[in-house]
Write a protein that binds this DNA or RNA. Structure first.
Lengths: 145, 145
DNA sequence: CTGTGTGCAAAGCTTTTGCACTACT
DNA sequence: AGTAGTGCAAAAGCTTTGCACACAG
């Protein structure tokens, strides 16, 4: 089951709870609130931005719980972590296979479909290992004036 | 001017100082010590590991200075920053165009020559932007038993 | 003496941990 | 009562900032 395409900025609680339960996550109030904001549509949010929106729109949830909940969602495959640079980590609610384009001046992240880009010539992998995932980040900047 | 291929674990101070000066960096004692360790050969070091080696092998250098020096070297193009995940940032003394293979179980990073891999099908870029760089990170893990 | 640049202690972040609490059996 | 799981305040850890100092003009 995946989130249906939508432009809503929040899922309703029942829907969010069902989604969590379907992944074996106990749907507590805090987790439902986080899911309702983050999983409403494909988007890229930092932990800080997510915390701010969750607390603006509902009952208080602590910073620690948001972090722990993000780690849980990550482990359960509900979100992906996109690390753009040392100072900028985004949580991506689009879990389909895709890559990223990062505008270094505007600090915005855009998805690129996996089948738009092809990566060929993977090298021999170390003995006994398999590919877990391949991340491509294309960084762009304003043209030098 | 580039660092000659070598297996040394440190550059001598004069050589490190010359390299810094050639990039317009004032070769202070602290910067020479950092360069002597980091730029001796192609390698991937975390800030913490670098600090530890610099202090083990010479006069004390503070943590803040190591961070500030890394940011300076980065700006001047002497090193690249490789962000593998939220908790793991490496400074890469190989500044040639290349990509990375990360072993998630052993936490080790390996270089992949840029011409071994080809990325095709870059999407249309936003108006007025140019590609700054393209990072490919291949994450591998031990085969599931 | 003034201005530019450097190094680092301390401050400010983000993230993790340890424990009190809850909800089941 | 015992066990497993949850939420968060406080602790830990990483990175940046602000300022004292050094040096050149």
């Amino acid at each position: 089951m995946t989130v249906p395409p939508t432009t809503r900025s929040r899922l309703d609680s029942a829907e969010a709870a069902r989604l969590l339960a379907s992944r074996g996550i106990v749907p507590t109030r805090q987790r439902v609130q986080v899911a309702a904001v983050l999983l409403a549509r494909d988007q890229h949010l930092s932990a800080a931005a997510l915390l701010e929106r969750v607390n603006r729109e509902g009952e208080p949830v602590s910073k620690a719980t948001v972090y722990n909940t993000l780690a849980l969602f990550l482990r359960k495959g509900l979100v992906r972590e996109v690390v753009v640079d040392r100072a900028r980590v985004f949580y991506d609610s689009n879990t389909a296979d895709h890559h990223h384009l990062y505008d270094t001046d505007r600090c915005t992240l855009t998805d690129i479909d996996a089948d738009q880009i092809s990566v060929s010539g993977l090298p021999a992998l170390p003995e006994g290992t398999v590919v877990d995932n391949v991340d491509v980040i294309i960084r762009v900047r304003r043209r030098r004036s």
